[in-house]
Design a protein around this nucleic acid. Sequence first.
DNA 1: TGTGGAATTGAATCTGGAT
DNA 2: GATCCAGATTCAATTCCAC
Lengths: 373, 373
Amino acid sequence: MTSKTKAPGADLPLNQILAGDCIDVMNSLPAGSVDLIFADPPYNLQLKGDLHRPDNSKVDAVDDHWDQFSSFAVYDDFTKAWLKAAKRLLKPNGAIWVIGSYHNVFRLGAELQNQGYWLLNDVVWRKSNPMPNFKGKRLTNAHETLIWASRDESAKYTFNYEALKALNDGIQMRSDWVLPICTGHERLKDSNGDKAHPTQKPESLLHRILIATTNPGDVVLDPFFGTGTTGAVAKMLGRDFIGIEREEAYRTVAEARLARVRKFDASALEITGSKRSEPRVPFGQVVERGMLRPGEELYSVGNRYMAKVRADGTLVGNDVKGSIHQVGAAYERAPSCNGWTYWHFKRDGKMIPIDILRQQIRAEMEADHARPN
Amino acid sequence: MTSKTKAPGADLPLNQILAGDCIDVMNSLPAGSVDLIFADPPYNLQLKGDLHRPDNSKVDAVDDHWDQFSSFAVYDDFTKAWLKAAKRLLKPNGAIWVIGSYHNVFRLGAELQNQGYWLLNDVVWRKSNPMPNFKGKRLTNAHETLIWASRDESAKYTFNYEALKALNDGIQMRSDWVLPICTGHERLKDSNGDKAHPTQKPESLLHRILIATTNPGDVVLDPFFGTGTTGAVAKMLGRDFIGIEREEAYRTVAEARLARVRKFDASALEITGSKRSEPRVPFGQVVERGMLRPGEELYSVGNRYMAKVRADGTLVGNDVKGSIHQVGAAYERAPSCNGWTYWHFKRDGKMIPIDILRQQIRAEMEADHARPN
DNA sequence: TGTGGAATTGAATCTGGAT
DNA sequence: GATCCAGATTCAATTCCAC
């Protein structure tokens, strides 16, 4: 382990996991010594009873003691304190990433602003495989929010624009990132075979963050280190890290994990490869976008049947309601039907298949993806 | 314009644009009279003199000298005031949507929580055609954030789950919505041919919001009405609206726009409903009507368990007696069980779920209800 | 060893009406 | 307000297991 010429404090405990409360530990480190902070603080979930899936299995909820706060005021005090300690540690051109859900992220963002951090972007992690909403009472909670902020308005923060553009097939990176949640072999297990940490983040997320906003040799601090995803990716990418973790069980898992990591593991670079396939277009989008109006009549192939569009993107015909596919199948007494090619709308006396509209939407998406700059 | 019997205040100024400051106007309206609020508040922190404290005290100009902290405080005062006025207007089961970007949305969300609104989801509007980032210094700002919250934790808010699922081709709607920004003929122009409003929202966004969280006849308030997207979509979808707008120029454009809008057919506004709203059928009715006889045997899913029907509509199995749900739950050692789909009876050697019998009874009730007297 | 179907699982503020 | 209880409710990815 070499001391860094860039670092003001040569005594910086690099590439280690420090035990203890993150505020105390941060305050013990030299000011202005860290390039980037990644922080995944407790979300302050306020869960009531148990939640069961439709098959009656029980959801393994986040009920850990470290996520319990008695009020927003207590949570805000905690947030104020660690953000203040974090700011002191940042170099003048340093930056921070925080991640949260709607339970806590508004409080994080507001306090960042209050303390004079300068918000650069909010970034949405769109989960490709989120947990569904089992009770049908809300929207599927399919994303988390990250906030990227520099130490203050004058900071000359690091942003590797071209590297991110390259990661995104040559198109500039947007503020919404589609990445899968952490599952499979990447998900660390404890000795019982249960998940070692309830909220382990995927390496692909940290990979993108570190590629975007650090350079090799930078010092990355994670005050809520958990099972050490930040440290693992930092090590792979040739960045130095400092982890802080209060729970001994997490530290143990993280130490073992870090020992297994190899620097510049080429496979890490392939994690975020983009998949190109024809995107699914729900018929409802055609209605929402006003390409067809609720009440408008659609006609079947051969003009034998008619059905009307409803505001929720279903069709209603004679005694039949349902999707474009279901109503088509019912009329034809067929087990299935491709509604996109079956149904037509009239324009200037001509019958036009609704698939034209889907192609228009796809063309827009394609044009957007291919737009230069 | 008809007065609504549902509304507590028959003097509610429905389907109009009210001129004036939104806080003053909201405070002049009767409490508990609005089903849904959609709010797109200004997020300009440069405060071009258009924000003032609730007590109307003059705010020191911030355009001459950037003072971040005082400007946040002023913005927070403004947010507090209008959210408080909004909460007073909501019916007990009412809800609110607010939209913002990273400049203001964290302050909005935190204040919603502070005031006791109950956050239901944060929703990401993922723009399919955002403005690119020209300088290459940050990520393309390709989304805005909406927050959906009920008036308080106990509110029985409206959520048309099945309709949204239909809009999304049969898969439950997620918290990230991909919709294009408002362009083309939908984008309103002023007499110079310039865009009439800098942040006109697409009708598709309001369509989804109103389908999701209102029913026909509901009262929707927009305190920052602008060019009236909320009113236009509300009118199309058979909802009543109240708009508040301070700027005469926007009111003029909105009035003209609303005059052009036509309501959709009633049949087109019918949406896919929830099973919860179907009438409850006691299992005892199945026995009373002779569809199953006392003593008849029912078999569980997978044919593993058996129970006998008793004359009072309960079941008796091995050491278990009770409702179809209770006996099913006991056999499965599950916290609950839907007996209607769990139990099957035999006819001609085939296993048929007893839910078929419930559907027959419901169909009879339907036919009976529809029969003219 | 391959393949197809069943089982498992993930940061969750996840019911509602009658009594 | 607390309690009881009918009965409605899931998507994608991975792993496990039977054959």
